[in-house]
């Protein structure tokens, strides 16, 4: 499990997270949603190991996240930052290859893994393009491929705790068009089907409703609810949380569909 236990974090004198407790299990997709400033990215950063808790704890398979060496942590979880950057002339292939964290991977397997991840991200045929020459969306997907390579490389890591168990995504769909957003989330679902726990910070509640097993709603640093989409996404709760009228309907699949009532807002 990747857990936050009574996680409390202060940033710039403000309580960014206030005693948040939630757990991500291997094999599930958990979406973290909420209005701007609710603490989504702070939660993501704390679980990724960037931020030390002021109170409470972040545990990965029972170990405090900040107590593990960076290399060991990288075997257990991959993280894809919001707006990832690259300041060198790497090709898409070289960029995705930065996710190869195990030195034991044979070169042929490493190359095949990178090629698979790039193909899964829809970049087949663009492997040797320089990342800076790709469009914003293509570049975002190349970084996504890097995270997928890291997850797969972590899985083969030796040791008592099987690695590659968690994938943390901070607004992975921000630079993507509608179809690519769904594609990215399908990749996250596929990783989950292979046993990886995926935590995705998402702005789009409909994307969360369509692809997440559970949705954690944050408001002003507190956990409002963490439940299946049908239970979490309620009209009254969302309207109060976002401070705007929001309707919730059902799609044919039974999944909730969130519709902001813009005219009344």
């Amino acid at each position: 499990m990747l857990e936050a236990r009574d996680l409390t974090i202060r940033r710039r004198g403000r309580l960014a997270l206030d005693a948040v407790t939630l757990a991500l299990a291997p094999g599930e997709v958990l979406a973290v949603c909420g209005p701007n400033g609710a603490g989504k990215s702070t939660l993501w950063s704390a679980l990724a190991g960037d931020l030390a808790p002021d109170a409470g704890a972040c545990l990965i398979d029972g170990d405090p996240v900040r107590a593990l060496p960076a290399a060991e942590l990288a075997r257990r979880r991959a993280a894809l930052e919001q707006a990832p950057s690259l300041s060198s002339g790497f090709t898409a292939r070289e960029l995705a290859g930065l996710g190869l964290i195990s030195r034991r991977t044979p070169p042929a397997e490493a190359a095949a893994r990178v090629a698979r991840a790039l193909a899964a991200a829809g970049l087949a045929g663009m492997e040797d393009r320089q990342a800076s020459e790709l469009s914003g969306g293509e570049r975002a997907r190349a970084h996504f491929a890097r995270a997928l390579v890291q997850v797969e490389s972590g899985r083969e890591a030796p040791g008592a705790v099987p690695g590659g168990r968690y994938l943390l995504l901070d607004e992975p769909t921000a630079a993507l068009d509608l179809a690519r957003q769904a594609q990215a989330m399908r990749l996250a679902r596929r990783a989950a089907a292979e046993g990886t726990g995926v935590l995705a910070v998402l702005h789009d509640l409909n994307l969360a409703a369509a692809f997440a097993d559970r949705i954690a709603l944050l408001g002003a640093g507190r956990l409002v609810i963490c439940a299946a989409p049908e239970a979490a996404l309620e009209s009254a709760r969302l309207s109060a949380l976002y401070g705007a009228p929001i309707r919730v309907e059902r799609a044919a699949s039974g999944r909730p569909v969130v519709i902001p009532d813009l005219a009344r807002a």
């Binding site: 960037d50 960076a70 990288a74 075997r75 060198s88 996710g99 964290i101």
Partner: peptide, 18 residues
């Protein structure tokens, strides 16, 4: 040094003791 091209935070996420 390759990982550092991603920036410090991402390099750490990819396993580098920055």
């Amino acid at each position: 040094l390759d990982l550092m091209q991603l920036g410090e935070r991402a390099a750490f996420h990819a396993g580098l003791d920055v």
